[in-house]
Design a protein around this nucleic acid. Structure first.
Length: 296
DNA sequence: CACTTGACCTGTCCGC
DNA sequence: TGCGGACAGGTCAAGT
C-alpha cells in the first residue's frame, strides 16, 4: 500500500535516472490502467524528454518537454520497477531476492522503454492504479490533486492550528480525518495507525473530542512518522518495492501496524486490532485509551 | 453538508 | 482437497 513515504522513495530513486532521458515507446498490457486517449501516446509522449520527476500527495508526476505531464497513482498494489540497461540500476542488481521473478509478469500493466535502453514496469495486481496524461499547466487542477490538502512539510499551510480547525467540529473518528486527503496529503492506513499511537490518541475518538494539546501531539506525530517512513525507504510488507524493485524496511520499525497480538514498544501491553472508519485498525489499549462506549 | 457504505479488482487465508 | 466468504485498503460514487 504505497503511501506518501513509498511514493517519495520511488521518486527519489527515479529522479537521477530519468530526468533528461527520452521515452521511446510505451507498451500497454492493461487498457484500464491508461486513463487517457491512447491516440495521444505517439503524438505527445514518444521521444519526449522527461524534464522533471516529482510528487504531490501519493501521485508521481513526470513533466515532459512537450508541455504535457504523466501522472501515476499506485493505489494499493501498484509497483514501479526500473530496470537499467544491462539489467543493472545504479550499479546494483535490479531485482532483489524478495521480488525475484523476471519481468514482465502477470501483474505488469504498462512498460515504458527509454532511449538509453532502460525500462520501467508499472505492475499492479489489483488494477486500481492509473496513469494519466495532462497538459503540465493543468496538473494542479487534476480531479484528485485539486482537492488534496497540504503536504506534511508545508510549514506555511500545515500547522497545529490548521489541524485543530479541521478536527474541532467533526464528529467522525479522528482516524477518518487523517485518512481524508483533503485535510493533509499522503496519509494512508499504515501511517494513520502509527501517528495515532505515537500521539497516544485512540483512532475511534471523535475528532471533536481531542484537546488542543492532543491535536498538537498528533500534528507532530504525523510529521514524525512520515519523515521516519521516508528515512527508512518506505514501508514494505507485501507489495511495495522501490524503483529498483527492492523492498523498503519501515515495517520493521512499525509501532502498531500489523502487530496485533504482539507487545506495545512503549508499555508492553498487547496490541489489539479492530475496525475504525471501515479499515483494519491497530492500537495499544493502554497508551491509547478507548473512548467510552467503544466496542473493539 | 456530514458521514457511511459499496464498488472497483485479484490473491490469500480461514473455516467447513 | 475444494469452496465460499472475509479481508487487504486508496479513492470515488452513491447512499442515508
Amino acid at each position: 500500500m504505497p503511501e506518501l513515504p513509498e511514493v517519495e522513495t520511488i521518486v527519489r530513486g527515479l529522479k537521477p535516472r530519468l530526468e533528461g532521458v527520452k521515452i521511446s515507446r510505451l507498451e500497454v498490457l492493461e487498457e484500464r490502467t491508461i486513463q487517457f486517449d491512447r491516440a495521444l501516446i505517439t503524438e505527445i509522449i514518444t521521444e519526449q524528454q522527461i524534464s522533471s520527476v516529482w510528487r504531490r500527495a501519493k501521485v508521481m508526476i513526470w513533466d515532459l518537454q512537450s508541455g504535457y505531464s504523466l501522472l501515476f497513482h499506485l493505489k494499493m498494489t501498484g509497483q514501479i520497477i526500473y530496470q537499467g540497461a544491462d539489467n543493472f540500476a545504479g550499479g546494483h542488481p535490479t531485482m532483489s531476492m524478495a521480488v525475484g521473478a523476471k519481468l514482465p509478469d502477470n501483474t505488469t500493466r504498462t512498460i515504458f522503454y527509454f532511449a538509453d535502453n532502460s525500462k520501467l514496469f508499472f505492475n499492479d495486481q489489483r488494477k486500481f492504479g492509473w496513469i494519466k496524461l495532462l497538459p503540465t499547466a493543468e496538473v494542479h487542477s487534476d480531479s484528485f490533486l485539486k482537492t488534496v490538502g497540504p503536504e506534511h512539510d508545508d510549514t506555511q499551510s500545515f500547522t497545529p492550528q490548521y489541524l485543530w480547525s479541521k478536527a474541532r467540529n467533526r464528529i467522525t473518528p479522528i482516524k477518518a480525518i487523517l485518512l481524508d486527503q483533503t485535510v493533509v496529503a499522503g496519509i494512508g492506513n499504515i501511517y494513520a495507525d502509527e501517528a495515532l499511537h505515537l500521539a497516544k490518541v485512540h483512532p475511534a475518538r471523535k475528532a471533536s473530542s481531542l484537546s488542543k494539546a492532543e491535536t498538537a501531539a498528533l500534528f507532530n506525530a504525523i510529521i514524525t512518522v512520515l519523515k521516519l517512513g521516508i528515512e527508512h525507504g518506505g514501508t514494505s510488507f507485501s507489495n511495495f518495492v522501490n524503483a529498483d524493485g527492492e523492498v523498503g524496511n519501515y515495517i520493521k520499525h512499525a509501532r502498531v501496524f500489523r502487530r496485533e497480538g504482539q507487545t506495545c514498544p512503549v508499555c508492553g501491553s498487547v496490541i489489539l486490532k479492530t475496525r475504525v472508519a471501515g479499515r483494519g485498525t491497530h492500537y495499544c489499549p493502554a497508551c491509547q485509551p478507548p473512548p467510552r462506549g467503544f466496542q473493539a
